[in-house]
């Protein structure tokens, strides 16, 4: 199981990749492993606003339904529609092809609350 050092993480098992004022969001390797086979994804449309801590989508495995929580606030600039037809990419490539949405961050102060890879790995060991 890997946790790329260039990414940020949340306690809800999402990863965030920062590119300027854009943040790409997906779920971690740990999350996809815990979910099992992902068979359904619901993500917001481009142009919609998401707010830190609120649910922005739903991911479903064969057995379970899980909410996705926004790690940051902002406006959705891209949605990975490929995943709607091939949600298994979330299992196969959680950190690249499995990205879910990109947002234009509205408050970069929120970045301070995210974990780095080491902190996240420790968090999983203690809470996983």
């Amino acid at each position: 199981m890997g946790f790329p050092v260039e990414l940020k993480y949340t306690s809800e098992h999402e990863w965030i990749r920062i590119e300027g004022d854009i943040a790409y969001i997906g779920v971690t390797d740990y999350a996809q492993e815990a979910l099992g086979d992902v068979v359904f994804l619901e993500i917001p449309e481009v142009g919609s606003e998401i707010e830190k801590g609120e649910t922005f989508g739903v991911v479903e495995s064969v057995k379970a339904v899980s909410d996705l929580y926004a790690p940051l606030s902002g406006e959705v600039t891209k949605a990975n529609e490929v995943l709607v037809d091939t949600p298994e990419l979330i299992n196969e490539h959680p950190y690249d092809d499995g990205w879910m949405i990109a947002i234009k961050m509205s408050d970069t102060e929120e970045l301070k609350e995210l974990m780095n890879a080491d902190d996240y790995e420790t968090y999983i060991e203690e809470n996983g």
């Binding site: 099992g36 086979d37 068979v39 495995s61 064969v62 057995k63």
Partner: peptide
């Protein structure tokens, strides 16, 4: 056991 290789597999 709920799954080994994965439910779909």
């Amino acid at each position: 056991p709920v799954q080994y290789s994965g439910i779909l597999d």
